[in-house]
Design a binder for these strands. Structure first.
Lengths: 203, 203
DNA sequence: CCGTTAATTGAACGCGCGTTTAAATAGTGC
DNA sequence: GCACTATTTAAACGCGCGTTCAATTAACGG
């Protein structure tokens, strides 16, 4: 076992545990045991519990914003359908397939009052993403593909909610619908969501 | 101060605190101090911390399901537009205006693995609500008001997600959009959401 | 092979948690 | 006014938490 393994194992164990049970409810002894090491290693690699969480959030979110940004830029250059919002749905679909625990984790921890990552998350991810998507929405409206009286701010909220909510509510949905969140289901979900939004907002 | 006051004050303080910071992160000493009493009173009235949470969840959710059920039955009897789904949007709008902290609380605590209220919530609220709404969706499809190829299960998820997500993400949305979640905003939001879904799913 | 640094260990620290308990007080029916 | 119960108090209990620390082992360049 090299050093990098311990660090990575801690991050993996922490992701699973925080995602499933929440930051405050998970002890570092739990995480360490799951990772096959001790709580003192968290202090060694991440400083403290907050540092561990920040590192894991950073690792999961870094790249997503940039992929959306890059995808949108590419589509803007080429113009034409599939509309620029497809980029968001596609990147969201990919990212959620890879790290489906992220929405639950963000919703539970970042939205908590006094969470140390809250301001950072808002400034670094939420606000840029909202600007990006609202810009896309306005461009689609200008291009005549979305209706002119669409409320761009609220449509942004709807966009994120439609994509993220099923993953937030996953355990309940699985039970209420008798479905498994496997790859096939997520693909079906992505297609449904995209169509619902685009037809609901079309010109 | 009568006894009922202490109990009610504890429930109110617990709602605010659990909603804002999460079950595990909130101590009974915090709640009690906010309610102007002591942690021992929680044991007296609710048995333990779980009992307090269960009572508060019960109080907030009881009635909502029945209101939806009653509204749907009334609409089914009278038939005709406004479509039966309007009942859901209207009840959701009312309930979310009265207790906007509920979605955050449910999402954070009920969805947690091992949460003692999870099974109860699923059996008592989530599954009945899903049956109710999926029934409505099928009826609307049969009536020709929603498109025949609509995925009813996923549309149920979209419905709840569209209504609940803005309240889940409220603190971030307020910052990202520069908006306040006042009554006017919630009304605007309800109208937007209803239209987006109904046009996105219409026949 | 040695000196130095990196990595890991296991025990300990103080703290705040949920809960319990025994005593004090308020309220109530007779 | 008295017996009895309901309510409230304040202190204490044990426990597990995040964190610290000195000691130990592994890794590695000269």
């Amino acid at each position: 076992m090299t050093a990098a393994n311990v660090r990575a194992d801690l991050l993996a164990a922490a992701s699973a545990a925080f995602g499933a049970r929440g930051y405050a409810a998970v002890s570092l002894r739990d995480v360490a045991k799951q990772a096959g090491t001790t709580a003192a290693m968290v202090a060694y690699y991440f400083g403290d519990k907050d540092g561990l969480f920040a590192a894991l959030l950073e690792e999961a979110l870094t790249g997503v914003l940039e992929r959306v940004r890059a995808g949108l830029a590419a589509r803007a250059a080429s113009g034409a359908p599939p509309a620029s919002l497809d980029v968001f749905f596609d990147v969201a679909h990919d990212a959620l397939g890879a790290t489906p625990w992220i929405p639950q984790l963000v919703v539970r921890e970042v939205l908590s009052e006094g969470a140390p990552f809250r301001e950072r998350f808002i400034a670094k991810y939420a606000i840029p993403m909202s600007q990006l998507l609202r810009g896309s929405l306005r461009a689609e409206i200008a291009a005549g593909r979305l209706r002119a009286d669409l409320d761009v701010d609220l449509a942004f909220a709807s966009l994120v909610g439609l994509a993220a909510f099923p993953f937030i509510a996953q355990p309940v949905l699985e039970r209420a619908l008798g479905a498994r969140f496997d790859a096939a289901f997520r693909t079906r979900l992505a297609a449904h969501t995209k169509r619902l939004f685009l037809e609901g907002a079309r010109a």
